[in-house]
């Protein structure tokens, strides 16, 4: 079953007098529990696709369909709730709330939902990410890699259906990058989370079950591992 898909998705940017077709008519579907990597040259529109798919940005035309429902029919409130319950985000630059400690950042989506924290689950995520000793610090006192891992933990905190990650390994060394990736793979299998990763790193892309290549806002290749 397709957890999320898009049909003839377009995103145009107007800068000055030029129109940039960042996403140029993409139709693609992702299955529940799938692990997919999106690759492509810089400026090809990977991040933009991710933002539109995850409802952070509105498409210029076309539709995003989550669980059989068109997101264009959702109001702002419903989209917010969808994002915090069903989607997890790891951005290109680690985005943490600077006024909150590591732990508070991690459980922020749960708190916004007024739910009880699943301590066992969170602790497990924290353990695997190896950030247990830095939780009481503010982000400004954490290294780039530590912040990135906090952001990943936050993305997983609400046990989302889909985790969108944009260059999550960008600030991690090879070893940490591999660790984080295997963690992502592990939790996605364990909780049936769909992983959509944008990456430049071919080693990362090769770990995925499916690799989508984008150039100039169009899909140029879509391969499934083992096929």
């Amino acid at each position: 079953m397709n957890i999320i898909e898009c049909v003839d998705l377009r995103k145009e940017y107007l800068s000055g007098e030029n129109i940039v077709n960042a996403v140029d008519g993409i139709t693609v579907a992702f299955e529940q529990g799938e692990f997919c990597a999106i690759t492509g040259p810089s400026g090809s529109g990977k991040s933009t696709l991710l933002h539109v798919l995850s409802s952070l940005e509105n498409p210029t035309s076309g539709d995003v369909i989550y669980n059989g429902k068109k997101l264009s029919g959702y109001n702002d409130n419903q989209l917010s709730v969808l994002r915090r319950r069903r989607f997890g985000f790891v951005f290109q630059a680690y985005n943490l709330v600077q006024e909150l400690t590591g732990y508070e950042n991690i459980v922020l989506p749960v708190m916004l939902d007024k739910k009880k924290v699943d301590e066992a689950y969170i602790n497990k995520v924290i353990d695997v990410l190896g950030i247990g000793d830095r939780l009481e610090h503010l982000p400004s006192a954490l290294s780039g890699g530590q912040q990135q891992r906090i952001a990943i933990a936050r993305a997983l905190a609400n046990k989302p259906s889909i985790l969108f990650a944009d260059e999550h390994t960008g600030n991690l060394d090879g070893k940490s990058g591999r660790e984080v990736l295997s963690l992502l793979k592990y939790v996605s299998k364990e909780f049936g989370i769909t992983l959509i990763l944008v990456t430049h790193d071919l080693n990362v892309a090769e770990q995925a079950e499916r690799i989508i290549s984008i150039e100039d806002g169009k899909i140029v290749r879509d391969t499934k591992a083992g096929v």
Partner: peptide, 12 residues
């Protein structure tokens, strides 16, 4: 900061 809170699902 507000944008980030919105991104992780804070309603208006």
């Amino acid at each position: 900061q507000i944008g980030l809170l919105r991104a992780v699902g804070t309603t208006k």
